[in-house]
């Protein structure tokens, strides 16, 4: 574990050089989304007889955007940077020449990805709080929920990167046919019940939907303990399965 901490530190040190830009983005992006899709679009939705979730639209969409942003941060960090560390900048190879093992490299990088999600989600949560969309003290728990969602995506996409990606083109397919559709259809903007069968079933199986549902229950303060434990459990399973797969692919890729 101590060795994993060293590889974690490496990524943190690198991040220190560029964090300003990413923090600016982490603050400004939620403001843009909330203002445009929550407030602006909300003026069209709120007069409707059947509002999504029976709350004002900004309250509905804010936790969805929060969870989706956690997914996007994790996906961004677990795709190109991991392939680069294997192939282009070859940071992993450099680490392997030290006492660090593959397990340390893998865990250290995952820990860093989760840290990135933690920082950006905390900022996001503060912004949606400033928009007055948090209606329960339980809303604070949306932060660990985002971290769990980030871990689920961080490990699963690390598995995709180490198992499938070779040139970088593969990420095009991942984002266009995985991440973007999830962002648009997994309950972020409207309840999945609006989707036709069997698309609604697919949406319910995505980790993002469980993250969105969990965050929404917490910020609106209306979920049931059992359902929320179910969401958290589902995300934990993704994290464990994704992590086990990713670790296997790391070994296959880095041991020669």
């Amino acid at each position: 574990m101590e060795l994993a901490a060293r590889s974690y530190e490496f990524w943190l040190v690198r991040y220190r050089r560029v964090w300003r830009g990413s923090v600016a983005t982490s603050v400004v992006n939620p403001v843009f989304y909330l203002a445009a899709l929550g407030i602006g679009l909300g003026t069209l939705v709120n007069h409707s007889a059947s509002r999504p979730g029976h709350v004002s639209y900004v309250d509905f969409v804010a936790p969805g955007l929060l969870a989706a942003a956690a997914m996007q941060t994790a996906a961004g960090e677990a795709s190109f940077p991991i392939l680069a560390a294997i192939k282009w900048t070859r940071q992993y190879q450099a680490m392997l020449a030290t006492p660090l093992g593959i397990r340390d490299i893998f865990l250290g990088h995952q820990l860093f990805i989760v840290t990135r999600v933690l920082i950006s989600s905390a900022i996001y949560l503060a912004v949606i709080a400033a928009f007055g969309t948090i209606h329960s003290p339980l809303g604070v728990l949306a932060l660990p929920a985002c971290v769990l969602l980030g871990a689920a995506f961080g490990t699963a996409i690390a598995a995709y990167t180490t198992g499938v990606a070779h040139e970088g083109n593969e990420f095009n397919a991942l984002f266009r046919f995985g991440i973007v559709p999830m962002f648009l259809f997994s309950g972020t903007f409207f309840p999945v019940s609006r989707l036709p069968v069997p698309l609604d079933w697919i949406a319910l199986a995505t980790p993002l939907w469980h993250g969105v549902a969990l965050c929404r229950d917490l910020t609106l303060g209306r979920g049931t303990l059992l359902a929320d434990l179910g969401h958290a459990g589902y995300l934990t399973v993704w994290t464990l399965v994704g992590g086990a797969l990713a670790y296997r692919f790391y070994r296959r890729r880095l041991v020669k």
């Binding site: 679009l41 069209l44 999504p52 639209y57 648009l184 903007f189 409207f190 609006r194």
Partner: peptide, 12 residues
């Protein structure tokens, strides 16, 4: 499909 048809139901 997402905004136009999914959310569109609520917008009218």
């Amino acid at each position: 499909f997402s905004m136009g048809f999914g959310l569109g139901h609520f917008v009218g």
